[in-house]
Design a protein around this nucleic acid. Structure first.
Lengths: 189, 189
DNA sequence: CCCAGTAGTGAGTGGTTTATTACTCACATG
DNA sequence: CATGTGAGTAATAAACCACTCACTACTGGG
């Protein structure tokens, strides 16, 4: 969509790929891998649908790249949290990372994409692979940097999964005991 | 698919609706709401695609019915677990229910459908509604029958969500520390 | 100034998908 | 055995989707 009047700024393909990756997060966050069309992704990125196929070989590769990008952001955010509690006890480090994660996923799209990636992982081998290796990195990092027990690390991820549920259901807009029970103590911004 | 040779057994529409509901669980379990076609559902049920639309007004209503059916089965299985530990402490009742749930979801399809329902809940209001009320019933039932603290009930569901992750990723076929850390102590059959 | 290479698009193609319609067949009842 | 009703389907409409290709527009280097 070149604007004929203003001076045009062509990006390099690499730059464009990065911006498409970012905007594709919110595209896929809505309806997941199967429910999102490449046209949706193109529209959000402000490019033509055809150009999506110049930047990525096919829809699956695009989705995989988006998922990987999200895992990288999560990993980065956990790192920030850990850095903020470097000298603390194992539990303090876990808390700090939980906090950082909570802040990160105040961007609802990012969390929903994690959830959709998990769903698509069950159906598409390529997605399963990237989600597995994503969680592998996260689990090993959390265990290593916190020094917490395996059980505590497991608990840490269990609570993370609970976050996915409460965000997907938007329980905080439900005023009922069951909703409060599920989301109690989970930080959100 | 009437076999012209053998004598034909027509079902009533209600019977048929029930069998379609059951077989549709495994159809939707593979690729979720958006990734599964009504033809897939029809094939598994052994009826024509057109007849799916006689039995259910549209795809969304079908999916909602399937989700509701699954929640009913989960609720039932928790009830069985609770009955088996009627006189026990709160924690014993929770454990018994966890066990019953683990046994129930040794049927992988049932668990995957829960996961896909959660994903679709984020996009489709009708699905969100049924998933919300499904979890509402489960949470309130677990809380009531076990008498456990709110924190313990929350923990119970957090572990349930962790089950969704390890099944979606098939971690038990991955031989690595991170996979064992996530799935350790989770019963499976 | 020209030209090679890259950014980017319009206009499709072939295959699918949801949903409808018009129809056939089975069966119970009087 | 005529007939009404519900079970079930084949065929298709209409929209949509992943992916392709031929093409134009911009830009930097010689």
């Amino acid at each position: 969509m070149p604007k004929p009047t203003s001076q045009r700024q062509l990006s390099t393909a690499d730059e464009r790929r990065r911006t498409v990756l970012q905007t594709a997060v919110s595209a896929f966050a809505d309806r997941g891998y199967f429910g999102t069309t490449t046209t949706d992704v193109a529209k959000r990125a402000g490019i033509s649908q055809a150009y999506v196929y110049r930047l990525f070989p096919d829809k699956e590769a695009l989705f995989v790249a988006v998922v990987e990008h999200c895992f990288a952001r999560v990993r980065e955010s956990l790192g920030d949290g850990a850095a903020a509690a470097k000298a603390g006890s194992a539990q303090e480090v876990l808390d700090a990372m939980g906090n950082a994660y909570a802040e990160l996923i105040s961007d609802r799209d990012l969390l929903l994409l994690q959830l959709h990636a998990q769903c698509a992982a069950a159906a598409e081998p390529a997605v399963r692979e990237v989600v597995r290796s994503g969680y592998a990195r996260l689990v090993e990092y959390v265990r290593g940097v916190s020094g917490a027990s395996e059980a505590d690390v497991q608990q840490f991820f269990a609570v993370g999964m609970l976050c996915h549920l409460v965000v997907a259901l938007d329980t905080h807009e439900v005023d009922a005991p069951w909703a409060r029970m599920l989301s109690d103590g989970l930080r959100h911004y």
